[in-house]
Amino acid sequence: MKSILSLLEKDATLTAKQIAVMLGISEAEAAASIKQYEENKTILGYKAIVDWDKCENELVSAMIELKVTPKLNEGFDKVAKEIEQYEEVSSVFLMSGGFDIWVLVEGKTLKEVALFVGEKLAPMEEVLSTATHFVLKKYKVDGIIAGENIKDPREVISL
């Protein structure tokens, strides 16, 4: 039931009952599928998508590219598993192309993030180099365009 996931991905506040109606299935069926997705971690979690730029205590985010020496028999997993443990790290991806691992770090200040990279990531034995890019403005986040709510532009018409 991929469509359950599509609906929840767009709006995680939908209830099993609402989803059931929208897809023309029974409530029990919808609830069971959702439970299964949660248990096998197809659904990783539910959270609000926050535009921190609108808040007083802003959040600094940085995208860090790491070049890494893979370990024998373990590839990149060992270093990735270590990096994912840090609370400051919100995402870790293995990448193709010019670098190997991509880390999204969030912190309160520029300095805090820079220090984290300098003190925690860069010194790791497998890490050959780091490149830190600070996010200056978020235009679109997880499929949602940031900014003000746009009023329905449709005007009154005889149709």
Partner: peptide, 24 residues
């Protein structure tokens, strides 16, 4: 004149109104 438009000039002035009227 079309009866569809009738209430909708009012709606555009009304705060917090929800319209299910538009045919587009």
């Amino acid at each position: 004149p079309s009866g569809i438009r009738k209430f909708f000039d009012i709606v555009s002035e009304m705060k917090d109104a929800i319209s299910l009227g538009v045919g587009e």
